[in-house]
Amino acid sequence: MTPILTTALTIGGAGLACGGLLALAAKFLAVKEDPRIEEINGILPGANCGGCGYAGCAAYAEAVLLKGAPINLCAPGGAEVLGHLADITGETAKVAEHKVAVVLCGGDVSHAPRKFDYNGVADCRAAHATGGGDKSCSFGCLGYASCSHACPVGAIEMVNGIAKVHRDLCISCGSCIRTCPRHLIKMVPYARTIHVMCSSKDKGPAVKKACKVGCIGCTICTKLAENESIKMAGFLAVVDYEKDLDSDAVIEKCPGKCIVRI
């Protein structure tokens, strides 16, 4: 019996001693933290999308309490999270307008061909930096899915070689916008559904050569759209998302077939 007893006592004793040390450490080395930080962190969606400008939800929670960050920065959380944050902090803020991302390019593989055979890293930024990108149009979606990979909620799908945002899944964090080397993705109000699906700054003939559904700068839509809600920016028609636009005429009359309702 003695060896068993000795063993049990030794191991048990060692265990007790270690446990005691851990307990002491937990007590004396504990980091003092405002319990509300943990509470806010629990309320935030936990997508860690970075849309608020902080490195994840925990950082934002800390910033709200310690650095006085505005409480309406969490786009994915919307009104619900804002309400909770207002309760905890006692601050008030207006709910930010519900916005969704849209990729302003409609030149999929059937409309805009490749101009060379790209061989390299399958990433839009890398492709863009190599020979200026392999798409015939130097402004269009390259289709290497960098935005789709960056999206924390899987709201961007690659369809026929270009990115499409599922607007009802989008949490408006803006991660995709930061990855697109061609700056094609815009955050637009959810209520606005008519878009010029082209971002080419080229002149009409060059656009036509590169893509079958590009904006050729004909300006027809700017005349049809109510209260100047589509304006020309150089050779490109651009929707002014601040204004209402709900005209089917602009869609039908666009010779480039690049104005669509999503």
């Binding site: 390299g120 890293v121 890398a126 930096a129 190599t130």
Partner: peptide
């Protein structure tokens, strides 16, 4: 591996 391309980016 496209090492230089990674470096460039």
């Amino acid at each position: 591996r496209p090492l230089v391309q990674h470096m460039r980016r």
